[in-house]
Simulated scan of single mutants.
Amino acid sequence: MEPLRPKIEQLVDELLDRMAAQGEVDLVSAFALPIPLLVISELLGVPEEDREPFVTWADAVNGTEHDPEVTQEAYAYLRKLVADKRADPADDLLSALSVVAAEEGGSLSETELLHNAMLLLVAGYDTTVYLIANTVLALLQAPEQLAEVRENPALLPDAIEEVLRYDSPVNISSPRWAAEPITLNGVTVPAGQPLLISIMSANRDAAHFDDPDRFDIHRDKSGRHLGFGHGIHYCPGAPLARMETLIAVGKLIERFPGLGLAVSSDTLTMRDSLLIHGPASLPVRLT
C-alpha cells in the first residue's frame, strides 16, 4: 500500500487547490469522498473511466435503502473486471487475487473472489470517507485540541485513533451467530441466531475507558478501541485508511488555518445507514 502514498498526496493537493477558489464547501463531497474512491480504484485496478458508478454501488450496499438491482449491477461489473484481470493481469490487487485463485490450487473460488472484490470496494471506500469527515468534525468541535495538532502535527495520529474510538465511521461489526444460547440483559439469544455487535457502544464502554464520552487526543493508548475490529476480524485495510486520513486531514488543516464549520453542528444530518456513521454533508468555511 505504501506506493500509493505519492498518488494520495498529489490528489489531496489537487483537491485543496480546487477548494481554495471557494469560500465554503461540503467537505464530504468535495474532499473526503474523492480520496478513497481514487485509492480503492487504483488498488483494485479499476480503469479511470469506470469509477464514477462506484459511489452509487457503495451506497446501495451500505445504505439503509438496499437496492438489489444496483447491487447486481455492481456484481456484474466486478465479474467482468475479474475476468479481464485473469485474461490480462496487471500490477494491482485484484489481478494478484485472480492469479492466486487460478494458478495456486484454486485457493479462491470464483464466488469467493467476486465477493472479496465487492468487500474491498465497499469496505475500502465508505469507511475511509467518514473517517476523514469524522476526524475533521471532531477537531473542529474541539478547537483547543485542533490548535495543539496544528502546533504539533505529530499529535495527528493520536487524534485519528481517538476519532476511531469516539466517533467511529462504522456502527456495527460484521454479523456474528450465537454458537450456544447467550443471555444478555435478561434476553436469551438462541443458538444459531444472528447478533449485530455495536462497535460504537464498545468504544464508549465506561468499564474500559475513563470518561468515554469525552474526545481527548491525549487519551491513554493502553485501552485499545475496536474501530478496526479485533483478532481474525481485524481490518486488513487499516494501514491504508490511517495513511489516507493522516495525509488528507494534515494537509487540510495546514492549508486552511481559518477552517471552521459553516453551520451549527446540531443541524448536521448523519448518513442514513445501519453500518456507516458520519455526516451526510459537512459544510465548512475555508477562511
Results as ranks from 00 to 15, higher is better:
residue 1 M to K: 12
residue 3 P to H: 14
residue 4 L to E: 12
residue 4 L to W: 11
residue 5 R to M: 10
residue 6 P to F: 08
residue 9 E to K: 15
residue 11 L to F: 02
residue 12 V to R: 07
residue 22 Q to L: 12
residue 22 Q to N: 13
residue 24 E to P: 04
residue 26 D to Q: 03
residue 28 V to G: 00
residue 28 V to F: 00
residue 30 A to E: 13
residue 31 F to Y: 14
residue 32 A to K: 07
residue 33 L to E: 15
residue 35 I to Q: 09
residue 36 P to D: 04
residue 37 L to N: 15
residue 40 I to V: 00
residue 41 S to P: 01
residue 42 E to F: 01
residue 42 E to W: 04
residue 46 V to E: 03
residue 47 P to E: 09
residue 50 D to A: 08
residue 52 E to G: 08
residue 52 E to P: 04
residue 53 P to V: 08
residue 55 V to W: 12
residue 58 A to W: 01
residue 58 A to C: 10
residue 60 A to V: 01
residue 60 A to E: 01
residue 61 V to N: 02
residue 61 V to P: 06
residue 62 N to S: 09
residue 62 N to L: 13
residue 64 T to G: 11
residue 69 E to D: 14
residue 72 Q to I: 06
residue 73 E to L: 05
residue 75 Y to G: 04
residue 75 Y to L: 14
residue 78 L to D: 06
residue 82 V to N: 04
residue 85 K to F: 01
residue 87 A to E: 12
residue 88 D to H: 15
residue 91 D to S: 12
residue 98 S to M: 07
residue 106 G to P: 00
residue 107 S to M: 14
residue 110 E to S: 03
residue 113 L to D: 00
residue 116 N to H: 13
residue 119 L to W: 11
residue 120 L to R: 14
residue 121 L to D: 09
residue 122 V to T: 13
residue 125 Y to P: 02
residue 128 T to A: 09
residue 128 T to N: 04
residue 128 T to C: 04
residue 135 T to K: 02
residue 139 L to S: 05
residue 143 P to N: 03
residue 143 P to S: 03
residue 144 E to R: 14
residue 145 Q to R: 08
residue 145 Q to K: 10
residue 146 L to R: 09
residue 146 L to D: 08
residue 146 L to Q: 11
residue 147 A to H: 14
residue 152 N to E: 14
residue 155 L to V: 00
residue 159 A to R: 04
residue 160 I to L: 02
residue 160 I to Q: 06
residue 162 E to S: 04
residue 164 L to H: 12
residue 165 R to D: 04
residue 166 Y to E: 06
residue 166 Y to D: 06
residue 168 S to R: 04
residue 170 V to S: 02
residue 171 N to G: 08
residue 177 W to Y: 14
residue 177 W to C: 06
residue 180 E to C: 13
residue 181 P to N: 08
residue 181 P to M: 09
residue 185 N to W: 07
residue 186 G to H: 00
residue 189 V to D: 09
residue 194 P to H: 04
residue 197 I to T: 11
residue 199 I to A: 05
residue 201 S to V: 15
residue 201 S to N: 15
residue 202 A to Q: 11
residue 203 N to D: 07
residue 205 D to A: 08
residue 210 D to S: 15
residue 211 D to T: 14
residue 213 D to H: 12
residue 214 R to V: 12
residue 217 I to D: 00
residue 222 S to W: 07
residue 223 G to S: 15
residue 223 G to C: 12
residue 226 L to R: 08
residue 227 G to W: 00
residue 228 F to R: 05
residue 230 H to T: 10
residue 233 H to F: 10
residue 233 H to R: 13
residue 234 Y to W: 06
residue 242 R to A: 03
residue 243 M to P: 02
residue 243 M to Y: 01
residue 246 L to F: 11
residue 247 I to M: 02
residue 248 A to G: 01
residue 248 A to N: 03
residue 249 V to C: 01
residue 250 G to K: 02
residue 251 K to G: 02
residue 252 L to M: 06
residue 252 L to P: 05
residue 254 E to P: 08
residue 255 R to K: 13
residue 256 F to E: 06
residue 257 P to H: 12
residue 259 L to E: 05
residue 261 L to G: 02
residue 261 L to W: 03
residue 263 V to E: 15
residue 263 V to S: 13
residue 263 V to D: 10
residue 264 S to C: 05
residue 265 S to F: 11
residue 267 T to Q: 14
residue 273 S to N: 12
residue 277 H to T: 02
residue 278 G to Q: 05
residue 280 A to E: 15
residue 280 A to C: 05
residue 281 S to P: 07
residue 281 S to D: 13
residue 282 L to N: 11
residue 283 P to V: 05
residue 283 P to S: 05
residue 285 R to Q: 07
